[in-house]
Design a protein around this nucleic acid. Structure first.
Lengths: 129, 129
DNA sequence: ATAGTGTATTAAGTGATATAATACACTTGT
DNA sequence: ACAAGTGTATTATATCACTTAATACACTAT
């Protein structure tokens, strides 16, 4: 596996999930983490496609999903820009975190693992902060 | 959505994931939770297929995956039986729990959420034990 | 003008999933 | 011996999501 650096972003693609989804998530996470400055321009669709060796349509799909989440804004003829509204970023971040929490709790319930046991399991895991 | 009861199992299928995977997970979770007695016989491939309105091949695929996990044993001409080895069940349960924990921690890391914040989020969730 | 943006369209290819129709090997009960 | 019920294998077909490809168009900046 080789990771590819494009601008502020580092991409590591595999075949486990749809490519457009991986591109979407890489950028979304970078924004949520605060790794990229708000208001800055994303690589152009064609640029990113070429560097990641993907079809422009595939990158396009990721970009459109980002805009649907209001994480980016499109300016015709100029490019796609990360939103400058930190509140939007926080909302998205919170929503994604909530999804992950719900998925975890759901998984524990399906396995019949109670709360205290689940908390013990969590503590056993190395946690890089 | 309508859930279908077959023997000791309750199935609720949708189109969000492969059908064979959903069948697999329903049975696997039932075993992990201890909802079914060890050593008992699963519905026959044809029976389950008919009741779930699936193709026998689809059910077959789920059953083969269960056997790969050693959660079931096949006796030619007799049927597919849940393992009697509770240790195997515990191992699988632990492995699945571990996967879920890792997925959760990974999600938090990707979002740049630290441990204490993640724990707070977990506490906000209603937890049916 | 020219080059660089996002965007839309149409076509084609690929792979995973699911169904369908059969056939075979084995076990149990009669 | 036979029939019925098991798991299993094979071949074919259909569908759908994803991806690529090749163009074309509208807009913006230099």
């Amino acid at each position: 596996m080789e990771s590819i650096q494009v601008g502020d972003f580092r991409f590591l693609l595999d075949l486990s999930k749809p490519l457009y989804e991986q591109v979407l998530q890489h950028i979304r996470h970078a924004i949520a983490r605060g790794d990229v400055q708000l208001g800055t321009k994303l690589p152009s669709v064609r640029d990113l496609a070429q560097q990641l060796k993907l079809n422009p349509n595939t990158v396009m799909r990721a970009y459109q999903e980002l805009e649907r989440n209001r994480l980016t804004e499109t300016r015709r003829g100029q490019g796609t820009f990360i939103t400058s509204d930190s509140e939007t970023v926080n909302q998205v971040k919170k929503a994604l975190a909530s999804e992950a929490v719900i998925a975890f709790v759901s998984a524990m319930e399906k396995l019949g693992i109670d709360r205290s046991t689940a908390e013990s399991l969590l503590k056993e895991v190395a946690w890089h902060e």
